[in-house]
Amino acid sequence: MIRVAFYGSSLVSSYWNGAATYYRGLLRNLASRGYGITFYEPDAYERQKHRDIDPPDWATSIVYPATPEGLRRVTADAAHADVVIKASGVGIFDDELLSGVMAAARPDAVRIFWDVDAPATLAEIRASDVHPLRNAFSGLDAVLTYGGGPPVVEAYKALGARRCIPIYNGLDPTTHYPVAAEPQFTGDLGFLGNRLPDREARVEEFFLKPASLLPGRAFVLGGSGWDGKQMPGNVRRLGHVYTHQHNAFNRSSLAVLNIARDSMAAVGYSPATRVFEAAGAGACLITDAWEGIEYFLKPGKQVLVARDGNDVAELLANLTPQRAQEIGLRALDHVLNHHTYASRAAEVDQVLRAELAARRRRSVA
């Protein structure tokens, strides 16, 4: 068994934690390939009060106090692992975790930085000559990223990373699949996303503007942080929508909308988890335009692409239930065959085993 110590934001809660389903899909499938996974997450941001799942049987879940003492305890645990992974965006002691777990790792252990928001991280690094990652690259075996494609790979290599491999989001067909519609989520266009500074302007353009242009249609908004935001009267706010409700949310509207964050839209090749969750549920997806979408879904056939809010309004106004169903079914078939977390985990497995072999060769030499 290959022992993995994974330090991330949260495995058991998606509350203010968009990476939850990404972690779950990848790590569950890695466990099936012979990895013993321990996931370390801080008790922060009320995530433990909003758990979506119980600790799974395919990973050991360790929740530590968000204190210096809690940090010291879990940092020391890295010495017991064959692979040590520090993810971005933990939210508490990120810099200290990175330096601490990599220093505690055994000489023959593989050291990975896993960036779940590469465009934003790269912007931070470029803005600071003393960013902790600048000094960390020499001790890392590889950087894995949530997405970003060639631009992110080239950027990380230019900064000194030995290897950079995008591991894209995917579908976990055991958690996201077609279900019956539910009245609480019914509408013409649904959008699910927390209110974030680098997304809000795009939500205004791609969701709220179409709502104002189509006053006779029903718009459904799920996600945290939208209280107090001025919106058209035909927008219904749901607040936080739990992971186990996502299938029903995606199936209950005529179409669902994906809106990339500013940095991910600018870089491209960064499909959000929502893209594959919606496709897995057989939903008709409308997405804002970003470079590389055709690598994942075929525009016009498996997904509808909008350049702005006017496009969203036009697409929705002309969308029939029959066409929406056809698009959703084509997307479902495509992601089941080409974009599951099982296939993503196979990529990670290949990377980790190659790096472990290289580490062992160097330690013997």
Rank of each mutant, 00 (worst) to 15 (best):
L133V: 05
F276R: 04
G149N: 01
H246E: 10
V101G: 06
R353T: 13
V83R: 00
A346M: 13
L196N: 13
P119W: 08
A324N: 02
S9V: 07
R360K: 15
E200K: 12
G328C: 05
Y7M: 05
D54H: 06
E355R: 07
A155C: 02
G25R: 11
I92V: 14
E69I: 11
L304N: 05
D82P: 06
A317H: 13
G170A: 13
I165P: 12
N29K: 14
A358W: 10
R307H: 15
R323G: 02
G280A: 12
G292K: 03
S253C: 15
H50Y: 10
D115W: 03
R163D: 15
I37M: 09
S212V: 12
R237C: 08
R362Q: 15
V84Y: 04
F113M: 06
I293F: 01
P197E: 07
I125S: 04
T145F: 00
R323P: 05
G160Q: 02
V130M: 12
L208G: 07
V4M: 14
G233S: 14
G187R: 06
I2K: 10
A81S: 08
L257I: 10
L352D: 11
W58H: 05
A289F: 02
D227P: 04
Y40C: 09
I2Y: 07
V305W: 00
Q230I: 10
Y40H: 10
T273C: 12
A278V: 03
L319C: 04
P151Y: 00
A155I: 01
R344L: 05
R307Y: 11
V116F: 11
N135Q: 11
N135D: 14
L332N: 09
V116W: 11
F276L: 05
L336C: 09
Q302P: 08
W290S: 14
V179I: 14
G223A: 00
F296A: 03
V312N: 02
R47L: 06
